[in-house]
Simulated scan of single mutants.
Amino acid sequence: MFRSKPISLALPPGSPQRINEPNYKGIHSFILRLMLFYSKQSTSIRAANVIYRRVVSQVENPLVYEVFRLEKAFRTTFSILVVHMWLCLRRLKVEGTEGVELGQYVYEIFNHDLEIRVSKAGVNLLLFKWMRELEKVFYGNIIAYDTAMLLDAKPDELHNAIWKNVFSDDGSPTFDAAALPAVLAFSRYVRRECTCLSLTDKESMFSGNFMFTNIYNPNTPG
Rank of each mutant, 00 (worst) to 15 (best):
A10S: 15
A10D: 08
P12I: 07
S15V: 07
P16T: 13
Q17M: 05
R18H: 08
R18I: 06
R18P: 02
N20V: 12
P22Y: 09
N23D: 14
K25M: 10
F30S: 08
M35L: 14
L36A: 14
F37N: 08
F37D: 05
R46I: 00
R53G: 10
R54A: 07
R54M: 04
V55F: 02
E60K: 14
L63Q: 11
L63T: 15
L70Y: 11
A73L: 05
I80V: 15
V83M: 06
H84R: 05
L87Y: 03
C88H: 01
L89K: 09
L89P: 00
R90M: 11
R90W: 04
K93H: 11
K93R: 14
G96W: 12
G96K: 07
E98R: 15
L102V: 06
Y107A: 10
E108N: 15
F110H: 07
E115K: 02
V118P: 00
S119Y: 07
K120F: 00
V123K: 07
N124C: 12
L126R: 14
L127N: 01
R132Q: 08
R132G: 12
E133G: 05
Y139C: 03
I142V: 15
A144E: 09
A144S: 15
Y145H: 08
Y145K: 04
A148I: 02
L150S: 15
D152A: 06
K154P: 01
K154T: 12
P155Q: 08
D156S: 13
H159I: 00
N160W: 04
A161L: 05
W163E: 01
K164W: 02
K164F: 02
N165Q: 06
S168V: 02
D170M: 01
S172H: 09
A178T: 12
A179P: 06
A179T: 13
A179R: 13
L180W: 03
V183Y: 03
A185F: 00
F186E: 05
Y189N: 03
C196S: 15
C196T: 01
F206C: 06
M211P: 01
F212G: 00
T213D: 10
T213S: 15
N219Y: 08
